[in-house]
Nucleic acid binder design. Structure first.
Lengths: 117, 117
DNA sequence: TAAGTCACTAACAAAAATGTAAGTATGCCC
DNA sequence: GGGCATACTTACATTTTTGTTAGTGACTTA
């Protein structure tokens, strides 16, 4: 398998590159939420309650920089910021969906418990 | 999104669980190679030349423990060990393939160079 | 006047993933 | 007897990722 270089980073296969863009703990959950509507920062915070401000902010910043999401700031007080998925972001949705379904299968196979609800 | 618990680990969504099983730097590259034939440890080493013995060994061990791969030891000297993908492992192949194709798309979109060859 | 809201950021701490170097057993070949 | 081969493991170091705590500005409400 060939190697790829981007921004002084070395990748050994396409999957590694894909995961550098949409991987990590929060990026897919964010994209998944944005897939059919805009979300405010505070709404994402409430929904992804286990994510700290810092991590949420960091993930969003990278998604914006990489063109998966756009950010709109309304000059109000207190401030309002809305995040919207882009076309590039939408292209990730089927991939996330497949991983999600695969994860659901695995959860069954491994008989994982589902503590709440 | 609900939470799941397995082996004292907490997962917040199915994708996170899937990635705990087939994620990391080496598991998908290994499964991808095993998809249509058996491989010896040393063959995998040669092919995944950037992986250290330790990481390769660790990834294989976990894949075996989780039932994605089986390991066959031949009592010869020097030893020979063969790794084979299981049915459970085969179920990961379409997922890996999709991630791979998505990664290839992204590499094009981001105009990433391909230094060798 | 004081406290609350929102969307962050900075500094630091902890945890997880990965890398490096060296060592193990057995037996063959020279 | 010395070196080589295979498939590892162990101890330790470094890097990367994630978490924790505290603070900011401006205006609104009590």
């Amino acid at each position: 398998m060939p190697d790829f270089v981007k921004d002084n980073h070395l990748f050994h296969n396409p999957v590694e590159f894909a995961m550098s863009k949409i991987g990590g703990t929060y990026k897919m959950p964010i994209l998944w939420r944005l897939k059919d509507k805009k979300w405010r920062f505070s709404e994402l915070q409430k929904s992804l309650s286990h994510a700290s401000d810092r991590m949420l902010s960091k993930a969003l910043k990278e998604l914006v920089e990489d063109g998966f999401v756009t950010k709109e700031i309304f000059p109000e007080v207190p401030p309002r910021v809305e995040y919207t998925i882009t076309d590039r972001g939408q292209k990730a949705i089927p991939v996330i969906e497949m991983l999600r379904n695969y994860g659901l299968d695995l959860l069954q196979e491994f008989e994982v418990e589902h503590p709440k609800r």
